[in-house]
Simulated scan of single mutants.
Amino acid sequence: MNRHAIVSTRIGDLTLVAAGNALAGVYFPHHWVKPAPSTLGEQVEPTGPVITEAARQLDEYLAGERTGFDLPIVLRGDAFQRRVWAALTELEYGETTTYGEIAARLGETAQAVGKAVGQNPLSIVIPCHRVLGKNGSLTGYAGGLKRKQFLLDLEEPVATRLF
């Protein structure tokens, strides 16, 4: 049975969805592809092990104190979406790619990859903010381009040190 809580972060409120003992969703207030309200479950206080731990790790990440997440997750999507989301999890902190590069690896079109990226239910945890448009241009993000730029800037110092 799903449940959700709204937590405040330095980039605004996030809705965290727990399914059993796993994190099933991280959504911005004006998320592009909103989940059906029935999939969120009951709204609860931001307590309980899954939501508390997800909120803690997100706070640490947004403060620049964490470069990855160690959370049990559950992904609901079709096989293609899960392939794209798996490709996103392979991106290291501070690493970026393009929709076209993922598409070439998966033998798909950039548009199909873009659609799957846009339906990522675990924003930030599955790092869709690390995907850029052709030639590295900043393109759409479920949380808005200002948040995407914030997340990329947050990770930039690590990426710069790698070169």
Score class of each variant (00 low, 15 high):
129 H>V: 01
125 V>E: 01
63 A>Q: 09
131 V>G: 00
126 I>K: 00
29 P>S: 07
105 R>Y: 11
148 K>L: 01
79 A>L: 13
62 L>Q: 06
29 P>Y: 10
53 E>H: 12
46 P>C: 06
20 G>Q: 09
26 V>I: 14
18 A>P: 03
78 D>T: 14
39 T>L: 10
80 F>E: 02
92 E>S: 12
151 L>A: 00
16 L>P: 01
157 P>G: 03
47 T>I: 13
21 N>Y: 05
106 L>T: 13
127 P>D: 02
30 H>V: 02
57 Q>H: 06
116 A>S: 15
13 D>T: 13
64 G>L: 10
77 G>E: 14
45 E>L: 13
156 E>A: 10
41 G>I: 01
100 G>I: 02
93 Y>N: 06
78 D>A: 11
38 S>K: 15
28 F>I: 10
28 F>A: 09
124 I>G: 00
132 L>I: 03
149 Q>G: 01
145 L>G: 04
17 V>T: 10
92 E>L: 10
136 G>P: 03
152 L>E: 01
32 W>S: 07
97 T>F: 07
149 Q>N: 05
116 A>G: 12
70 D>K: 15
33 V>D: 06
32 W>P: 00
64 G>R: 08
97 T>Q: 06
124 I>M: 02
48 G>Y: 14
91 L>M: 14
131 V>R: 00
95 E>R: 15
34 K>A: 14
63 A>W: 10
101 E>H: 14
